[in-house]
């Protein structure tokens, strides 16, 4: 009983790890590997934001800020040669944890739309700061001269290196978060989303958990940002702006709000769909592929919200349950 239970929770991770290892062997295409790096990086972001919005009910829109801070801090530290890139990643994660603590402590008292407004303001401020502080960030021309990542003598150079690095982070975060959500702390977090008054009457220290979760997801975003900047060897403020925010929200909605695997599915679907749109419609409308994918994603969101309000993850789960019930029905009550 106990063994089978542990096995069952590990199955998705084992499958994921197997797929990630086998993919470059089966399809050794640099293009696919490169898109998959983005799927992992955006997956980590969407995962964190999905937990904040879907599980904790914290409508925080500041997620691109932590991503950007992680990218810029580790990028600047490495480009100026102040610390080695590996240490830079850790430094930036600590720094982001500190900033998100300082900002989160007062801001998380806000609820609902007020929190959304305040965090959105933070995003705008960070955008402007990133563009204007030219001597630190390189402004809108971008931050150049970021060396490749090296960890303990190993230099990450090829797409494949970053592919394994980013997926290690992604699967690690996914594992951590799914353990968390199914633990005492995770249930407390889900409980205050449903009813704050009942939750605190059961002894849940709501402000503490909100702040801890906020910092945790910020650090996840920061780590993703660091890998992102070392992969591209370049960052500009527009990578971390409103466009990214909309994309993340799209991933969460399409993948499934309130499920832990939803945002990862969303990241995969959105990024690959965009690639496919660019490949096929790029030939028909060469000058306006950006507009074409907006139209597509708009239609997709409408379809998902109408037919699968719990997103792709919810839909898969529902079909699975339906299949199981049908199977049980045909097998008969004796089985």
């Amino acid at each position: 009983m106990k063994n089978s239970e542990i096995d069952r929770t590990h199955i998705p991770f084992i499958i994921m790890i197997a797929v990630i290892i086998l993919l470059p062997i089966i399809i050794p295409s640099a293009y696919i590997i490169s898109v998959m790096v983005f799927v992992a990086v955006y997956g980590v972001l969407a995962l964190g934001m999905g937990i904040l919005i879907g599980h904790a009910g914290l409508f925080s829109l500041a997620h691109p800020v932590w991503f950007g801070l992680g990218a810029y801090i580790s990028g600047i530290l490495a480009a100026r040669g102040w610390v080695s890139p590996g240490i830079g990643i850790i430094v930036s994660a600590f720094f982001v944890a500190l900033i998100s603590y300082i900002i989160g402590a007062p801001i998380l008292r806000l609820r609902g739309y007020y929190l959304a407004c305040a965090t959105f303001a933070l995003l705008l401020i960070a955008q402007i700061a990133g563009g204007q502080l030219t001597n630190i960030t390189g402004g809108h021309e971008g931050l150049l001269g970021i060396p490749p990542l090296s960890l303990g003598g190993f230099v990450f150079q090829t797409d494949l290196h970053y592919y394994f690095l980013s997926w290690a982070l992604c699967i690690g975060c996914f594992w951590f978060c799914s353990n968390l959500i199914h633990s005492r702390v995770g249930r407390a977090i889900r409980s205050f989303h449903d009813s704050e008054i009942a939750s605190k009457s059961m002894g849940v220290n709501i402000p503490k958990y909100k702040l801890q979760l906020f910092i945790l997801t910020s650090v996840m975003a920061s780590l993703a940002g660091s890998i992102f900047c070392f992969y591209l060897c370049f960052t500009v403020p527009s990578f971390f702006g409103f466009h990214l925010l909309v994309e993340l929200l799209m991933m969460i909605v399409i993948g499934g709000i309130g499920s832990i695997q939803g945002p990862l599915i969303g990241s995969f679907v959105i990024l690959w769909l965009r690639e496919l749109i660019h490949i096929y419609f790029g030939k028909i409308f060469p000058v306006m592929t950006g507009e074409v994918d907006s139209i597509f994603f708009g239609i997709l969101i409408i379809i998902v919200l109408i037919f699968m309000p719990r997103g792709l993850a919810g839909w898969v789960e529902q079909s699975f349950n339906l299949g199981r019930r049908t199977y049980a029905y045909f097998k008969g009550p004796g089985a």
Partner: peptide
């Protein structure tokens, strides 16, 4: 004021919240 997204058992388990002590890190790393 029940927690509608949680099961009956999970609701009862949130009630036991004060009886546990593991924090977020221990929970995430299991």
């Amino acid at each position: 004021e029940l927690f509608l997204s949680l099961t009956v058992l999970e609701n009862a388990m949130v009630g036991c919240h004060t009886r546990g002590r593991a924090g977020m890190f221990a929970a995430g790393l299991r």
